[in-house]
């Protein structure tokens, strides 16, 4: 095994181009488990720990450009207002020690259906910025990034540079089912974001299909129901029947398996429950914010 230690982003891209089989290592919280248990013996480990750019984030007008290696702890501490869904999801990852090392770039690299960043990114709206020495930069919409169980759209000479995530324009929630609060890989998880500016609702489902997915049919149903009833303007409570239909459609978007963490039918059921709850929580907070601004006006 060789340990490659690029000091800059350009050097990292050059090293990945020269050694396409090299395994990048950021926080190492996935890679080291595999090496410790001999599940993986890469020829080259490509340490990204010295590439300072990957640890930085920029808050822009409409998006946050989040460096691939920014640890979850930093997201929770610094980006709660801009990225509330991702900050909540980050807080559910493992433990403080793991959150101090692991980040979204590694979560995307592993592309596990149980990765907690994915539902939050899907719900918020995001693009993954990847780069290769030969072809430069391209941006992959996060919906197109997950291509199979633990597979992603990266080419062998590409590295993830950053994720561009839409700044929240409304309430966001993240919900996760597990046996305890810490150190739990999701049995299933659900992210939901209200986007009052575009009058849309977006979702993300974790651990209930071969890849993280959006519940598109549920989103379309709810977007139409909210529009029709003038809900965005009148701020009424979403009718129980609409919430139920939304939850059912979210369950239907799942394609889960039975495994040690849970059965397929439990996952489908739990996703429906989380969909209804996160919708209620976010909608209540949207109504509260509306009342506050109307009261002030």
């Amino acid at each position: 095994m060789d340990f490659l230690r690029p000091a800059s982003w350009e050097e990292a891209l050059a090293a990945k181009a020269e050694h396409p089989t090299a395994v990048p290592i950021a926080g190492g919280t996935d890679v080291m488990v595999e090496i410790n248990f001999d599940h993986r013996r890469p020829e080259y480990l490509l340490d990204l720990g010295r590439v300072g750019d990957l640890y930085e984030w920029e808050v822009g007008e409409d998006t946050v450009r989040l460096g691939a290696s920014v640890p979850y702890t930093a997201i929770m501490e610094n980006l709660r207002a801009e990225l509330p869904g991702l900050a909540l999801a980050s807080h559910t990852v493992a433990s403080p020690q793991i959150r101090n090392r692991g980040g979204v770039g590694g979560n995307l690299g592993t592309a596990s259906p149980a990765g907690d960043a994915h539902p939050a990114l899907l719900a918020a709206g995001a693009e993954v910025e990847v780069e290769s020495a030969a072809r430069g930069t391209r941006r992959i919409p996060v919906d197109a990034f997950y291509t199979g169980v633990k597979r992603n759209a990266l080419q062998s000479d590409e590295l993830i540079r950053a994720v561009h995530i839409d700044k929240a324009d409304g309430p966001q929630q993240y919900s996760k089912v597990g046996t305890r609060n810490a150190m739990v890989i999701a049995v299933c998880a659900f992210g939901l974001a209200l986007h009052p500016r575009t009058r849309t609702v977006r979702t993300g489902i974790g651990s209930a299909a071969p890849t993280p997915v959006r519940a598109t049919a549920a989103e379309e149903f709810l977007n139409a129901a909210l529009e029709e009833g003038g809900f965005w303007d009148n701020g009424k409570i979403i009718t129980p029947s609409a919430a139920k239909r939304f939850a059912d459609l979210c369950s239907a978007a799942c394609n889960p398996i039975d495994d040690v963490r849970g059965t397929a039918s439990y996952r489908r059921h739990a996703v429906g429950v989380m969909a209804r709850r996160t919708l209620t929580w976010t909608w209540e907070s949207y109504r509260g914010a509306r009342r506050a601004t109307e009261g002030a006006a």
Partner: peptide
């Protein structure tokens, strides 16, 4: 050796981490 137990916790540049999940070369 898989980050679950925390008994290997050390501070790396001040930050608590599981030392079983830090590659030796990353500590350079």
């Amino acid at each position: 050796e898989q980050g679950e137990c925390g008994s290997c916790t050390v501070r790396l540049d001040g930050v608590p981490v599981c030392s079983c999940l830090v590659a030796a070369g990353q500590a350079e």
